[in-house]
Design a binder for these strands. Structure first.
Length: 942
DNA sequence: CCTGTCACG
DNA sequence: GACGTACGTGACAGGG
């Protein structure tokens, strides 16, 4: 044993922080055999394992301990009986897991220390002091700000969550003072979490200001009379005792009587047998295997005792880690289907059950250009196969010719597709996929129309929008506790990346079949929850049916005229070159106009203009908003704005769009993500066709490149003021509803009501202000935001808002009710029952305002999204037989390509569908109005 | 890979 | 009282 001293590096892990993070990060998992809650233990072990993996290398610790709290009564409670009095009670299902985390720590062979009547923080402080005195280094693994007072002289903190080291400067960033004065600041600012009172009315900022001015808390309190602000002065004088008590509460104790020494904390290798036995006892199948792998040991078999009904029932609301009938995921157990004979039983199994999970493997992520490489099927959890179809034989590196041969052990593509087609199109067999639109599009290019379908991504979206994303990796990790094989492992990344057809089939089987297996497991787990969460109608009515509709639109694409774009590109380039020369001239030297940092340097440093702000990275910030203020006086700023606009148009639109023209179809095929936006909106990617310019004259011309082929016309139909109409309905504002019924100018009406100006005397400026307020309401208005938008003083903006609420009290009520609902249920809902979770709504701090506004906006934006989704779903049947195709959606607008002679009829049909899309589920008190336009291109049609 | 900026509804 | 502020997206360029 080596004596702790110079060269030693002690790691102190805040155990309680680990436990709580693990508990809150994971769903309430239970042990399969007896229903024991183990979610927190599982997360705790994962975090320890990750810690062990990450802490090797040159900076590895020589000594380590996990420190826990013990006992609820400490010396601080003797000083102040309300200390930590507002702490919530420990959740029921966490309590039994606490002792298990000690066992887990010891199983990893890491020292595990606690002391009755002492907080972990004091033990950590004591050990850190001892280590520092002995000349060693210390890293405290915690993000608890109470520990920041210990930083310095070889002691640092590591925020494991953000993987960020915090040194003296880091502490200064947080507290505005260096570690020696942190307790002084804390004593003043107090801490609501620990119920430390501090000085009322003083937060961290003010506290740091005062401490820096006076040097120390004691000095400040002695000379409090010198403070200018009367309120602050009185507080400090009156609350002196309370502040001094607060300091004692936050001051950590470096003299905790420990019954061990630093030398007892020396890092030890874990005993594989003991560690694996513990993990197996907990029945963590994935983690057991992972650690067994890491240790080079055999993973013990986890006994599969059936859960007695009573034990399962004893933990109500607890979701089982894996549904009881699901065996652990084992990629080695999947089947390689090599022949038609191999495939037959899988088809039969799928038919017999009435469902099958399907996944396709392809050469790329673009459904329009990739090629099919294989198909995997899963019929039961653990029973999955992969049918390779176009894998290439392994060729030598220099083998430029032979490597395109097909690998052995594959059914000829067409033969396999002929066998699969009847199954994939069988109306009696549900095809389950994760993001089925992708697979359906690929297969449709091979002549297979997959139906009916279920989609685990969309099931998750209907259930959990706002809680997390809905990709397979996230879902698998979250709901199955399993990390799928990363595709990177097969394809590599960057320059050396290969396509899936080059992956050896043995490897492909594991990956591909696992995807189908996971999809099936997720389906079994999540599908039954739809009706429990009352979102079956949303899923079946507005998510799932959209898949084939979008697939058809995306496959159709929109014709884009390359010549128009490239002519514009050239023109933009010339203008930009002129502007660039002019700017270099104005600056007196050449610089990169595209670099905001350099532009800022010239404006604010070289030219010495006021109003420059820096970003958090320290570079100058030059958003358009700032440049616009300068532009009236300074040509330089005006030219930069002109340049930026052209640069944006050229790089994002006229240049990039050309790259997206599909050489085979001559058209641009966007992809819509159905589960991307939390509110129910779609998102358009590769390319994004939902942000083609329209507001500026120059930008709008880009829409001229979106054309109809010979003999056809582009038709655009868009909802007029849909979100304001929904607001009028949801908030029940009679005046607004009546205005919409009468077809009045809604913004002018609002202005007239608010400012008492008769409609005949309305000016455009007053109307503009009312319009900004109307939109502000939809966004969860704030005085600050409105002030910025209208470029008026904040007080004036607030006065507008106050008057608005006075005139339309129903809006205020709606907003308050929505927030109250969100706070109670952690979610909001649209008129159609779409659920948007608002997990941050009860959070404290800067997130709170954000969450409030999002909660106000979500039902309105989401209801509008529901309505256009419903219209889109009904559209194909409504326009069947007409010479028309629906091509694009832009949130409140649908774009069609129609034969000239069919335009009037299409407009009539589509308008009827769109205006009636809310019904019969919702009967709005306001009419929905759809405007239509037509032309040879999108610019004319809009 | 992250940040800043800017395009849309 | 302090903090940061309209809502929802995606793409591109710069810079480490």
């Amino acid at each position: 044993m080596t004596q702790f001293g110079k060269g030693c590096h002690l790691h102190l892990i805040d155990g309680s922080a680990f436990i709580f993070r693990a508990y809150h990060a994971l769903p309430p998992l239970t042990r399969k055999s007896d229903g024991l809650p183990i979610g927190a233990v599982s997360g705790f072990c994962n975090m320890l394992q990750k810690y062990v993996e990450d802490s090797s290398g040159p900076d590895a610790p020589t000594h380590v301990a996990v420190i826990f709290d013990k006992g609820s009564h400490t010396f601080r409670n003797d000083m102040y009986d309300l200390y930590k009095a507002n702490r919530e009670a420990m959740p029921e299902d966490l309590r039994p897991q606490i002792p298990l985390t000690r066992t887990a720590t010891l199983a990893f062979n890491i020292a595990c220390k606690e002391l009755e009547g002492f907080e972990a923080d004091d033990i950590i402080a004591t050990l850190a002091c001892q280590a520092r005195e002995a000349g060693g280094r210390v890293t405290i693994i915690s993000s608890d700000k109470d520990l920041m007072q210990l930083v310095g002289d070889g002691v640092e903190m590591l925020d494991a969550m953000k993987n960020r080291r915090i040194d003296r400067d880091g502490v200064f960033e947080k507290f505005g003072v260096f570690p020696e004065r942190v307790v002084d600041v804390q004593a003043l600012a107090g801490d609501s979490v620990d119920n430390v009172p501090g000085a009322p009315g003083i937060g961290i900022k003010t506290a740091a200001l005062l401490i820096n001015e006076f040097g120390s808390l004691e000095e400040l309190l002695d000379r409090a009379g010198e403070i200018k602000q009367p309120k602050r002065r009185e507080t400090l004088i009156e609350k002196r005792d309370q502040i001094e008590l607060s300091k004692k509460l936050v001051q950590l104790d470096c003299n905790t009587p420990l019954d061990f020494t630093l030398d007892d904390l020396e890092v030890k290798e874990p005993d594989p047998e003991k560690l694996l036995a513990f993990l197996a006892e907990m029945e963590f199948s994935t983690l057991t295997k992972r650690i067994a792998n890491a240790l080079g040991a055999e993973a013990p078999v986890i006994t599969e005792a059936k859960a007695p009904a009573a034990a399962a029932a004893a933990t109500p609301g607890a979701a089982a880690a894996e549904a009881p009938e699901m065996p652990p995921i084992d990629p080695a157990a999947y089947t390689w289907v090599k022949s038609a004979g191999d495939l037959a039983p899988w088809i039969a199994q799928a038919r017999q059950r009435g469902w099958v999970a399907v996944d396709t493997e392809t050469t790329g992520l673009n459904e329009m250009t990739c090629e099919l490489v294989g198909v995997s099927l899963a019929v039961e959890p653990g029973q999955a196969c992969y049918i390779p179809l176009a894998h290439r034989a392994a060729g030598g590196e220099a083998d430029l010719f032979g490597s395109d041969d097909l690998a052995e052990g594959q059914i000829p593509m067409q033969e396999a597709l002929d066998i699969l087609k009847p199954l994939l199109e069988d109306p009696a067999v549900m095809k389950i996929g994760q993001n089925m639109k992708y697979d359906a599009k690929v297969l449709s290019r091979y002549g297979i129309g997959v139906a009916p379908i279920d989609d685990t991504m969309l099931i998750s979206y209907a259930l959990h929008a706002g809680l997390h994303n809905h990709g397979m990796d996230a879902l698998s990790e979250r709901y199955l506790g399993h990390v799928p094989i990363p595709i990177k492992d097969l394809l590599g990344s960057g320059k050396k990346m290969i396509t899936f057809d080059r992956v050896p089939i043995e490897e492909a089987v594991k990956y591909a079949a696992e995807d189908a297996d996971i999809t099936l497991r997720l389906w079994k787990l999540l599908k039954p929850r739809l009706h429990l969460s009352r979102v079956t109608r949303v899923y079946e009515g507005t998510e799932r049916p959209l898949v084939p509709v979008l697939a058809e639109m995306e496959l159709a694409g929109v014709q884009v005229d390359r010549n128009t774009l490239s002519r514009m590109s050239t023109a933009f380039a010339q203008k930009m070159a002129g502007l660039e020369a002019e700017l270099h001239e104005l600056a007196g030297h050449p610089f990169n106009v595209n670099s905001p940092a350099q532009v800022g340097e010239i404006l604010f440093a070289e030219m010495g203009l006021e109003g420059g702000k820096k970003t958090k990275t320290g570079a100058w910030s030059t958003p358009a908003e700032v440049l616009e203020d300068l532009a009236t006086e300074h040509d330089f700023a005006a030219r930069v704005l002109d340049y930026r606009q052209l640069q944006k148009l050229k790089s994002t639109y006229t240049d990039a769009l050309q790259e997206h023209i599909n050489p085979e179809t001559g058209r641009v095929h966007t992809s819509y993500s159905i589960a991307g936006a939390n509110t129910g909106r779609l998102a358009s990617t590769e390319p994004n066709l939902q942000n083609i310019p329209v507001r500026s004259e120059e930008g709008r011309r880009i829409r001229e490149a979106f054309v109809a082929p010979e003999g056809k016309v582009i038709v655009s139909l868009d909802y007029s003021q849909i979100e304001l109409r929904i607001l009028a309905h949801m908030a029940g504002i009679d005046a607004l509803k009546q205005a919409f019924r009468d077809g009045h100018d809604i913004h002018a009406m609002t202005a007239s009501e608010m400012f008492g100006v008769p409609m005949e005397e309305m000016t455009s400026d007053i109307r503009r202000r009312a319009k900004a307020i109307n939109f502000g309401v939809i966004y969860g208005i704030s005085g600050f935001g409105l002030a910025r938008n209208l470029r008026i003083p904040r007080g004036e903006a607030q006065a507008f808002i106050d008057r608005y609420f006075e005139r339309f009290p129903g809006i205020k009520t709606y907003m308050d009710d929505t927030i109250a609902f969100a706070k109670e249920h952690d979610r909001v809902e649209t008129l159609f029952g779409r659920v948007i979770h608002t997990p941050e709504i009860n959070a404290k701090g800067p997130h709170a305002g954000f969450a409030r506004r999002a909660a106000i906006n979500a039902p309105i934006q989401g209801t509008a999204a529901d309505i256009i989704r419903r219209a889109m779903i009904r559209m194909p049947a409504a326009i069947a037989g007409q010479p028309a195709k629906m091509l694009l959606q832009v949130h409140d607008e649908l774009i069609f390509e129609v034969a000239e002679e069919g335009v009037d009829k299409l407009i009539a049909t589509a308008r009827e569908i769109m205006e009636g899309a809310a019904e019969p589920v919702v009967k709005l008190d306001v009419p929905l109005v759809v405007d239509a336009g037509q032309g040879k291109n999108w610019a004319e049609a809009h």
